[in-house]
């Protein structure tokens, strides 16, 4: 397989965030909750991202908050992916009313607005922790992938080799595990990445409106305090810019990985034969330049 520069960039960035999730809290120069007398200071050599109204170090908050973000994203991603595979593949493989019923179920969950649903559930829970938040997000956001997987399974089921396996009397389990699932890997992977992105944004959004792990930090809690302490009105841009950029970078990394997978799944999106001077164009096939020197250069390049 050719290396895909987009996916590679994304993976490297993801690796960085994962590393920060592990070592971030130890690397943090300060305890993120610790108050100090340096109130609302702009970035300096001591406080790289400045301080809050209580003198807390924002760099440490962002660094320490990475763990919660990555953790919730990963757990919710795994939960939603497992559910979506169970529901989607079963719905696609079963014919008749059972399949239809599962498919209707995922459509229902797809149409119900996810964030408000997550908000009412999490705020009704006796306690919120990273784990419960991740579980609620995971349990409510599997529907999109289930839908995609169902469609893929439906089309795989009609392939010759699957029909043949069925005619040979192989068990449904064997067929699903060995004939169908291997062909769904890319779709499942892309669904996982998409759900992680959704989960991360949801967790941060929840924290921003005040639903978060008690006592813990994540990028959303940083923004929550920035918003509730009127950071904007006080000109404290450093309070919300780093956390927001961190979200955008993580989001971009995840999207890049997904582009790579998309291009792998849908060859039409691939830009395989890009070369300077030749623009692949539908309807007007490029004609290579006939200048012998140029032509030779292209052939050897």
């Amino acid at each position: 397989m050719r290396t895909n520069p987009k996916a590679l960039t994304g993976l490297v960035a993801l690796g960085f965030f994962a590393l920060m999730a592990v070592v971030g809290p130890w690397l943090a120069p300060f305890d993120p909750s610790e108050r100090s007398s340096a109130l609302l200071q702009p970035p300096s050599a001591e406080h790289w991202f400045g301080t809050t109204h209580l003198g807390q170090d924002i760099f440490s908050q962002v660094l320490a908050g990475t763990r919660s973000v990555v953790l919730v994203g990963a757990i919710a991603g795994v939960v939603a992916t497992v559910l979506s595979v169970l529901v989607g593949v079963t719905a696609g493989y079963l014919s008749g009313s059972a399949g239809e019923g599962l498919s209707a179920l995922s459509n229902v969950f797809l149409v119900i607005p996810a964030l408000p649903l997550i908000v009412i559930i999490t705020s009704s829970l006796p306690e919120t922790s990273n784990l419960t938040i991740a579980l609620v997000i995971g349990l409510t956001s599997w529907a999109w992938n289930a839908r995609v997987l169902r469609a893929q399974t439906l089309s795989l089921r009609r392939r010759d080799y699957v029909e043949a396996a069925r005619a040979n009397g192989e068990s449904a389990w064997r067929i699903i595990l060995f004939e169908i699932m291997p062909n769904l890997t890319a779709v499942i992977a892309s669904g996982f990445v998409g759900t992680v992105l959704f989960a991360v944004v949801s967790e941060i959004t929840l924290a921003f409106i005040g639903v978060s792990d008690a006592g813990g930090w994540n990028w959303g809690t940083v923004l929550y305090w920035a918003q509730s302490q009127q950071a904007l009105a006080q000109g404290a841009w450093w309070w919300f810019v780093p956390a927001g950029l961190a979200i955008a970078l993580l989001g971009t990394a995840l999207s890049l990985v997904n582009f790579g997978i998309d291009e792998y799944v849908n060859p039409r999106l691939r830009n395989r034969f890009s070369m300077p001077g030749v623009r692949m164009r539908v309807g007007f096939t490029p004609v290579l330049p006939q200048d012998p020197k140029l032509a030779q250069k292209l052939e050897t390049s």
Partner: peptide, 16 residues
């Protein structure tokens, strides 16, 4: 047929 009418879709290229 499509090459000579320049209707060949990518990645088709008329070399000469």
């Amino acid at each position: 047929a499509y090459g000579m009418t320049r209707l060949l879709p990518p990645p088709g290229v008329v070399a000469s």
